[in-house]
Design a protein around this nucleic acid. Structure first.
Length: 507
RNA sequence: GGCGCCGUAGCCAAGUGGCUAAGGCAGUGGAUUGCAAAUCCACCAUCCCCGGUUCGAAUCCGGGCGGCGCCUCCA
């Protein structure tokens, strides 16, 4: 029951041991809020939300921090184009981001610091780096001097010598091309903060070093982000933080794989939009990219997207398509039918079932029930997989196995319609299912039933049709009963006949 | 060119040295049903190719072929 975590720094799975016993600090690189979120931005949050759930379930006290980078060249550009302030641009996109996170069931984030609210810490850190000889001021900018850090490049196995870069526009102000900006001098009209080096704003990487230090301390447990951030962002974070503090910054660097829209189109976010005319044939919209995420969520539901992401191991590349999400959704639906079955059986909602909140609490001795012996076995397998670097993809298979077992038991023991049946074991099995699905952040709350004013009327009309059809069936008037059912099917309503009467559902 | 990842059934995807290679979607056959739907049962892969290590490899090593990422302020 030890958790093992793949560490990008060591390129191996390591046994998880926290800096402070029983406590875990996680810092996830959040978005730079210059545009609406696309689905790629959701991957990290969904994964680390799940990681936190599992660590909490395993008995840890977890502090999950996701930052917002709200000062950056792209934000300034956007603000200028639209003639509004950088803050307004940021606020719009933060609202969009939060809305999308909520839709995907990401509710485990404890703190969301903003770069602009950490300016004192950023300036103090830059000053300390200069003082310690790792950074230098140059014409109002401040650069980190990579050659002063003997360990520079350790995360990505690069050497300073191998850094081919030409240094970009700032080359003339840098001592060597690999040096990166800690502080950038403000141009006229740009948002800026006062500093010992003149008015300016932070470079890209320093805000994460400053925010993580302020909230989680100089050494913390897990730092996460997309694979694309390893270099240069995380490499530079390590350099800054460790040169500043002379101690390891992070115990485990965890990087999630990226989403791809389709083999030809390439990646989803990032630079593609800058490729001008090429624009890869509108792949952003096709991929639910910029502007498309909210609509995608409306069409497919956030939970489907979450499940789709969690079906695959977090370090894998996921080939994204709406079809693939819909397919994952079919699997999810089978659980919902099982939950409806639970409701028919017990008269209670699956979503009201009490379930263990921790692994210890959930441990149980199955005793004589064949069902519970099997359930316990799959629960163990599920937890073993989660222990192994949060293998959610493998864990999901155990959930399907459990669902099958429960359905099978209900079938074989003919529990439906049997009022006198002993449901103790079945309830226990469902409760274990609830315990484990909760770790993935799925099936947490009952799905929203249509709250529109006419839903009651629809329900009554449906009941009328069902009653009429039942009476036709009783008279063996199958022509009539089939017409009713076929017409409903054509409308997207599925009827299911049962001994206790028919039920209906959309889809 | 440098650093790194990946190639498992029609599709998606676990497994990374040893029981019958998870699970999902799709499909086929069966149980159930008036017929369906839902559910259950059964069937459905020897793991890109070649060579090596080993008693034994999808799993390790070498070489191919193929796909992808980073090296450019993209999660």
């Amino acid at each position: 029951m030890t958790i093992r975590v793949y560490n990008t720094l060591s390129k191996t799975k390591e046994e998880f041991q926290t800096v402070t016993p029983g406590k875990v600090g996680i810092y996830l690189c959040g978005p730079t809020v210059y545009a609406e979120a696309h689905i790629g931005h959701m991957v990290g949050p969904v994964i680390f939300d799940t990681v936190k759930r599992y660590l909490v379930y395993s008995g840890y006290e977890v502090n999950l921090v996701v930052n917002i980078t709200d000062v950056d060249d792209k934000l300034i550009k956007k603000a200028t184009e639209r003639g509004i302030s950088m803050e307004e641009v940021a606020n719009e996109n933060i609202a969009d981001y939060l809305h999308n996170l909520a839709a995907l069931g990401v509710d485990q984030i404890d703190q969301m610091p903003k770069a602009t609210e950490t300016m004192d810490g950023i300036i103090a850190m830059v000053a300390e780096l200069i003082e310690k000889g790792f950074a230098y001021a140059s014409e109002g900018d401040v650069y980190f001097e990579v050659t002063k850090d003997p360990e520079y490049g350790k995360l990505t196995n690069r050497t300073v010598e191998a850094m081919q870069g030409e240094g970009g526009e700032a080359a003339s102000r840098k001592r060597s091309p690999g040096d990166f900006a800690l502080w950038k001098k403000a141009k006229a009209g740009e948002p800026s903060w006062k500093s010992p080096w003149g008015d300016g704003r932070p470079g890209w990487h320093i805000e994460c070093s400053a925010m993580s230090k302020a909230i989680l301390g100089e050494t913390f447990d897990i730092h996460g982000g997309g694979l694309d951030l390893i270099f240069p962002h995380h490499e530079n974070e390590i350099a800054q933080s460790e040169c500043c503090h002379a101690k390891p910054m992070v115990k485990y660097w965890m990087h999630n794989g990226l989403l791809r829209s389709d083999p030809a189109a390439g990646k989803i976010g990032g630079r593609a939009e800058r490729e001008g005319a090429a624009e890869a044939g509108g792949k952003m919209s096709r991929s639910g990219g910029a502007g498309g995420l909210a609509k995608l969520i409306e069409r497919q539901s956030g939970e489907r997207i979450r499940f789709f992401l969690l079906r695959t191991h977090y370090r894998s590349t996921i080939l994204f398509s709406e079809e693939a999400i819909a397919e994952a959704g079919i699997g999810l639906d089978s659980f919902y039918r099982l939950f409806e079955r639970y409701e028919r059986l017990t008269g209670e909602s699956f979503f009201d079932l009490p379930a263990a909140k921790t692994r210890k609490e959930g441990d149980f001795e199955p005793k004589k029930s064949e069902l519970l012996v099997a359930i316990a076995k799959h629960r163990d397998a599920y937890l073993e997989k989660m222990d192994d670097d949060f293998n959610t993809g493998g864990a999901v298979s155990e959930l399907f196995e459990m669902a099958r077992l429960i359905n099978k038991t209900i079938d074989q023991q003919k529990l439906e319609g049997d009022k006198s049946a002993d449901l103790t074991n079945i309830k226990k099995a469902f409760s274990v299912l609830r315990e484990l699905t909760g770790i993935l952040g799925i099936f947490v709350t009952a799905p929203e039933k249509s709250s529109s004013g006419d839903s009651e009327l629809v329900g009554q009309l449906m009941q009328l049709l069902i009653d009429v059809r039942a009476s036709a069936r009783q008279k063996k008037d199958f022509e009539m009963s089939d017409v009713i059912r076929d017409r409903l099917t054509a409308m997207g309503v599925t009827l299911e006949d049962r001994k206790e009467g028919a039920t209906w559902r959309l889809g």
